[in-house]
């Protein structure tokens, strides 16, 4: 899993100018994606997870302002790449699938034709015949049953799962190095979600594809991601290998998320503990830790300053004052009796 880094995002900030003021959706996040890994980005609505991924592809509305120290993708800085150059990357070397394929597909064009169009856009030298063969091959790769007839079907004639397969086929048409999947299974039934997750896993294994998988569902994260970023209030709260994050969650927000969802494999009388309150207003996000108004361990230091990064292992980082060496031991959920959990 520890392949070379293919994408390195450095201090990305994205905001939107609105009538009410500037919505600071992403407020300085840094992360990297390695070859062949699935990086999960988890967070609630408004946490900035989708905006972060849209920023990488620079598909943002006109009122958006993006700044970053760098977004390094194979030696090119995506934050400063001219628009024309970017076209060669978007949809070809980095592609994206969305939550609702119905709104991303053209309702007036057959499924096969749409995939063909995107192929020809990036490889115009390929003839129609060859493109058609390639589309059918792609439909096979995404396990589309009855590919020939699905090629001629319009999006409304396909089920949600089939539409998402069409989107994935389109995303794979130019053999991308990175696939950004923004809640690709959220609108699907659990049984179909299972099928799509299985497909993504197979593709990752077969094509050495890296995936950024954006979701709010911790169950899906556990099933498919190698590493996870937990986002809240436009910032990364915690980052770690999936195993680390679930076995040793090291941020109060992560703890809260895990306690909010019932688990099938746990006794039913284990009580749900919701996180009180609601997410911060991104027009005027808190100066310190964005989670402090909802955190049961909040102290004065949390209000004033953003926490420093605490490293729990080479792969596991948390942004919480409770993990700093000078944090109180009393009532600290991250200190085991006697020894320090942090560091």
């Amino acid at each position: 899993m520890a392949g070379e880094t293919i994408l390195k995002v450095n201090n990305l900030k994205t905001s939107f100018a609105t009538k009410a003021g500037r919505v600071q959706a992403v407020r300085g996040i840094s992360f990297e994606v390695r070859k062949g890994e699935v990086l999960g980005i988890v967070g609630e609505s408004g946490s900035g997870k989708s905006v972060a991924s849209l920023s990488i592809l620079r598909v943002l509305p006109d009122n958006a302002t993006l700044s970053a120290d760098s977004i390094d993708f194979g030696g090119q800085d995506l934050a400063r790449l001219p628009k024309k150059e970017f076209r060669k990357i978007r949809g070809a070397r980095i592609s994206m699938i969305f939550q609702d394929p119905m709104t991303s597909l053209n309702p007036l064009m057959t499924a096969g034709r749409q995939v063909e169009e995107s192929l020809l856009e990036h490889c115009p030298q390929m003839g129609r015949q060859a493109a058609r063969r390639k589309v059918l091959e792609l439909f096979g790769r995404v396990r589309m049953p009855d590919a020939e007839s699905r090629y001629r079907a319009y999006p409304h004639e396909l089920s949600g799962g089939m539409r998402q397969r069409v989107m994935i086929a389109m995303a794979l048409s130019c053999d991308p190095e990175l696939l950004i999947a923004d809640e690709p299974t959220t609108a699907l039934d659990v049984t179909i979600q299972g099928q799509i997750l299985l497909l993504l896993k197979e593709l990752r294994g077969a094509a050495d594809l890296s995936v950024i998988f954006i979701t709010h569902d911790l169950g899906v994260v556990a099933g498919i991601c190698d590493r996870v970023l937990v986002m809240y209030g436009g910032l990364v709260m915690e980052e770690g290998l999936t195993g680390e994050l679930f076995s040793r969650p090291a941020h109060p927000y992560t703890l809260g998320l895990l306690a909010s969802v019932p688990r099938l494999d746990q006794p039913k009388d284990k009580r749900l503990r919701p996180i009180a309150g609601s997410p911060p207003d991104m027009l005027a996000p808190p100066a310190g830790c964005p989670f402090f108004p909802r955190c049961e361990w909040a102290r004065n230091v949390c209000i004033d300053g953003r926490p420093e990064c605490a490293r729990l292992s080479p792969t596991h980082k948390s942004m919480c004052w409770l993990l700093q060496p000078d944090a109180p031991g009393e009532g600290n959920p991250f200190r085991k009796a006697g020894g320090a959990y942090a560091g």
């Binding site: 659990v190 049984t191 979600q193 299972g194 997750l197 569902d217 911790l218 169950g219 899906v220 994260v221 556990a222 099933g223 999936t242 195993g243 679930f246 076995s247 895990l258 969802v261 688990r263 099938l264 494999d265």
Partner: peptide
């Protein structure tokens, strides 16, 4: 249906 539900625990998943 039950088998399709993702469980938030990588060890089980």
């Amino acid at each position: 249906l039950l088998e399709s539900i993702p469980i938030p625990d990588p060890a089980v998943a």
